[in-house]
Computed example of a mutant assay.
Amino acid sequence: MLLRVLASQLSPAGSRARLSILIYHRVLAQPDALLSAEPDAAAFRWQLQVLSSLFTVLPLSEAVERLAKGTLPARAACITFDDGYADNATVALPILKELGLPATFFIATGYLDGGLMFNDRILETLRRVPEGAIEWPDLGLDHRLIGGDQDRKQIAAELIQGLKHLEPSERQARAQAIAERSPTPLPKDLMMTREQVKHLAAAGMTIGGHTHAHPILARTPDAQARAEIAGGRETLEHLLGEPVHLFAYPNGKPEQDYDHRHVTMVREAGFAASVSTAWGVSTSSSDPYQLARFTPWDQTPGRFALRLVRNLLTSRGAHEV
């Protein structure tokens, strides 16, 4: 295959290797008009089939170690999930096992066993609001009309963007105020249970830290940020009975969502490596505490494959991320 040959040239084995790390959040059992950016099970399966046909998929912990040693195979890639959604265990895991592929799951521990992230409170509230006019002046929404799911998505996106960078307790309080406008109860099973996290680990998957409450670290006081980073790790290690070596920065944009202070905190907390959401691939010169990741969003196998290969052209060095 031409793309495989090109990928081998762009990402050879050894010291010149380039590590591709994919980001997922959810894998839906069925398509969802309000979550059109998230793959369903059928799309996830073909995406992984394309990935494994072009790349050598490794556990992230092994890939990080081999990247540092200069022993990565050609076209090395890893699969990661952020946040800890239950469908990671119920939908994604069976497909990963079917295809024999490893993945790393970064868990925000504060939402285990019935929690709901602020963005889901908002989205699930809008899902339940009936069509017609809404008047929420205290939220900056005057004379808005819901005529279908596209309107729900647009309003939810506006509200989420407005709350995303608030301090965690204020963000949750405002999201809860929105949730109270839902005409029916919000779901309590969107996030994993502790047993599901243990099931992932028992299935050979890697579990990583993602803080406790998923704050934007750059907007969080240093003492609280340090507690979030270390506390999430401690919860997971107590749950699993084994060390947790990998971390993912919430939201993950360098110098926007986290900065050099938080890189130091992650290192001092005992993690061996961490990942950002800076687009591109990592090389032997990349900071192991700021590894690049990306999300191919294309909806057809051919375009998805091309995106995977094109991403190899964007490398992140030690001081670029």
Rank of each mutant, 00 (worst) to 15 (best):
105 F>P: 00
174 R>I: 08
102 P>F: 02
164 K>D: 03
55 F>R: 07
86 A>E: 09
247 F>A: 04
184 T>R: 15
285 S>K: 14
111 Y>N: 10
236 L>E: 02
183 P>V: 06
36 S>A: 13
114 G>I: 02
295 T>P: 13
150 Q>N: 15
189 D>Q: 13
95 I>L: 14
34 L>W: 00
286 S>M: 08
95 I>F: 09
196 Q>M: 11
170 E>M: 13
151 D>A: 12
245 H>V: 14
118 F>P: 01
251 N>R: 01
156 A>F: 03
144 R>I: 14
87 D>P: 02
233 R>Y: 08
321 V>K: 04
302 G>H: 09
108 A>C: 04
163 L>F: 07
132 G>Y: 07
9 Q>C: 14
82 D>A: 05
119 N>A: 12
256 Q>P: 06
41 A>P: 05
119 N>P: 09
201 A>C: 06
138 D>F: 07
293 R>K: 08
205 M>P: 02
214 H>P: 10
282 S>C: 03
145 L>K: 14
41 A>W: 02
186 L>Y: 00
201 A>G: 09
285 S>C: 09
306 L>H: 13
188 K>V: 10
49 Q>S: 08
237 E>C: 11
25 H>Y: 03
168 P>T: 06
267 R>P: 04
143 H>T: 14
94 P>N: 03
160 I>P: 07
93 L>A: 07
37 A>K: 14
192 M>W: 06
304 F>W: 09
216 I>A: 05
235 T>Q: 15
4 R>N: 12
210 H>G: 03
193 T>H: 11
182 S>W: 05
53 S>C: 12
104 T>Q: 03
193 T>R: 11
163 L>S: 01
219 R>H: 10
138 D>T: 14
244 V>C: 04
137 P>D: 11
289 Y>I: 01
175 A>H: 01
304 F>H: 07
102 P>I: 05
264 T>R: 10
12 P>V: 07
25 H>Q: 11
223 A>H: 12
118 F>D: 04
13 A>R: 07
158 E>A: 13
187 P>N: 04
221 P>R: 03
190 L>A: 10
313 L>W: 13
129 V>D: 05
133 A>G: 10
218 A>D: 08
136 W>G: 09
124 E>D: 12
55 F>L: 08
58 L>N: 03
122 I>A: 03
69 K>W: 10
172 Q>M: 11
311 N>L: 06
287 D>P: 06
209 G>Y: 06
254 P>S: 00
146 I>K: 03
117 M>N: 06
222 D>P: 13
126 L>Q: 04
162 G>S: 08
66 R>H: 14
50 V>N: 02
188 K>Y: 04
146 I>Y: 09
160 I>V: 10
216 I>W: 00
95 I>N: 09
230 A>G: 12
253 K>C: 04
107 I>N: 00
55 F>Y: 15
128 R>H: 15
258 Y>D: 00
163 L>R: 02
59 P>A: 10
258 Y>V: 00
